[in-house]
Simulated scan of single mutants.
Amino acid sequence: MRPRPDLALFAATSGHSGVDRIVANLLPALAGLGLRIDLLNIRGHGPHLDPVPDGVRVVDLGRAHVWPALPALVAYLKRERPRVLLSDKDKVNRAALAARALAGGDTRAFVRLGTTVSHNLASRPWFDRAVQTLSMRSLYRFAAGVLVPSQGVAGDFAAFTGLPRARIHVVPNPVVTPHMQALAAGAPGHPWLTDGGAPVILGVGELSARKDFATLLRAFARLRRQRPCRLLILGEGRRRERLLALAAELGIADDLALPGFVANPYPAMRAAAAFALTSQWEGLGIVLVEALALGTPVVACDCPSGPREVLADGRYGPLVAVGDDAALAAALAGLLDVPPPPALLAEAAAPYTVEASARAYARALGLELPACSPAPQENPA
């Protein structure tokens, strides 16, 4: 008979989201600490683990959507009785809490949210906003706890929902992996990063309103008038044509490249002269931590929430007001003139290693680790 799972993770993602990256790093690390883990799979959705590490079992719930999978999830909870059920994002969280109530037993259900809720919901259609607000304020009190990636998200969520702050646990995202440097050693992919020409400013993320790359383009146009430089933005999204039109309007089209989504952005991060995060809101800012870990100077908009915590109030990189392209241009110029030492940047990324994160998750979930826990595994994908 298979031992009772320590943790069952229930999620339904796009396959290339921030949650996918977190799961791909976190589950192998937790398994490496000796925990038995089930990844509950919705067909056609992520997260995907390739290869599946020892200690992790993928359980197919047999459905392609979250709510039709509810009976299978209830049956799984009754049959396997995992010590902890962890879910991520509101729709999945609602289904997980419903399944836990229907299944009974002593499984403790935790939910996770990765972004600043009040700002995220303000951008949603009214119906989605109403449903999610109701679920967070009424259903989440039945969870054993809520996991979030930053103190800013925790404070915002407590104020938004009225949930006691003690029920909300801040756990660092598992960003910095042992194989990150090896992945960064690959070819950068874009000729600007290897041709020895003007320095390259880098942005990474979905081409969406939330990421606000329009502010980065305006800041770059200011910087470009002062010195030779180029702007590379990795990512795909609905704002692509708008950004290209804005670049033409600003006269920087020849110095902007939008090559699309890149599965491994680390070589570009390491080769860039500076990295910019211009989001209107975040939960933490994973790409910000990745750039720091690879020794690239960073500047970030002081959005809610995450960048101020990651950059320690500006100790590890300048913070500018959201949407302030003049301040962003000045900060980028300063980084190009006097880049901070790589050791300082590595210090900023240290709290976000997979081992530190895995142990923090285990503590927050109340999972007791084996007496002699081995070193966490990594996902080599």
Score class of each variant (00 low, 15 high):
residue 178 P to T: 13
residue 179 H to I: 11
residue 164 P to S: 00
residue 175 V to S: 09
residue 140 Y to M: 07
residue 179 H to F: 12
residue 133 T to A: 09
residue 144 A to F: 06
residue 171 V to Q: 07
residue 166 A to S: 14
residue 184 A to H: 13
residue 160 F to W: 06
residue 173 N to R: 09
residue 177 T to K: 15
residue 165 R to N: 01
residue 130 A to T: 13
residue 145 G to S: 04
residue 159 A to W: 00
residue 172 P to H: 11
residue 158 A to Q: 01
residue 137 R to Y: 00
residue 161 T to I: 00
residue 171 V to H: 02
residue 163 L to G: 01
residue 165 R to D: 04
residue 146 V to T: 08
residue 146 V to K: 04
residue 132 Q to N: 14
residue 140 Y to W: 15
residue 163 L to C: 03
residue 176 V to N: 08
residue 153 V to T: 10
residue 143 A to P: 00
residue 147 L to G: 04
residue 133 T to M: 02
residue 143 A to G: 03
residue 133 T to K: 07
residue 151 Q to E: 15
residue 158 A to M: 01
residue 167 R to Q: 12
residue 151 Q to I: 07
residue 179 H to C: 09
residue 151 Q to N: 11
residue 180 M to Q: 15
residue 149 P to G: 03
residue 154 A to Q: 07
residue 160 F to M: 03
residue 166 A to T: 12
residue 159 A to N: 06
residue 174 P to I: 13
residue 163 L to R: 08
residue 173 N to Y: 12
residue 169 H to E: 04
residue 178 P to G: 14
residue 132 Q to H: 12
residue 176 V to C: 10
residue 170 V to K: 02
residue 159 A to R: 15
residue 176 V to M: 08
residue 162 G to W: 05
residue 160 F to I: 02
residue 155 G to Q: 10
residue 185 A to T: 04
residue 175 V to G: 09
residue 168 I to H: 05
residue 128 D to R: 14
residue 182 A to E: 14
residue 140 Y to Q: 07
residue 137 R to N: 00
residue 128 D to G: 09
residue 156 D to F: 07
residue 176 V to H: 08
residue 145 G to D: 03
residue 173 N to I: 02
residue 153 V to A: 12
residue 178 P to N: 14
residue 159 A to F: 01
residue 148 V to H: 03
residue 153 V to G: 06
residue 183 L to A: 15
residue 159 A to T: 06
residue 186 G to E: 08
residue 186 G to C: 11
residue 172 P to Y: 07
residue 172 P to N: 10
residue 148 V to W: 01
residue 175 V to H: 09
residue 131 V to N: 02
residue 129 R to E: 05
residue 180 M to L: 15
residue 181 Q to R: 12
residue 165 R to Y: 00
residue 136 M to V: 06
residue 149 P to W: 03
residue 163 L to K: 05
residue 141 R to K: 14
residue 169 H to Q: 08
residue 177 T to N: 10
residue 154 A to I: 03
residue 185 A to C: 06
residue 145 G to W: 01
residue 129 R to T: 05
residue 157 F to H: 05
residue 130 A to H: 11
residue 134 L to A: 11
residue 154 A to N: 05
residue 161 T to L: 00
residue 180 M to W: 10
residue 170 V to Q: 00
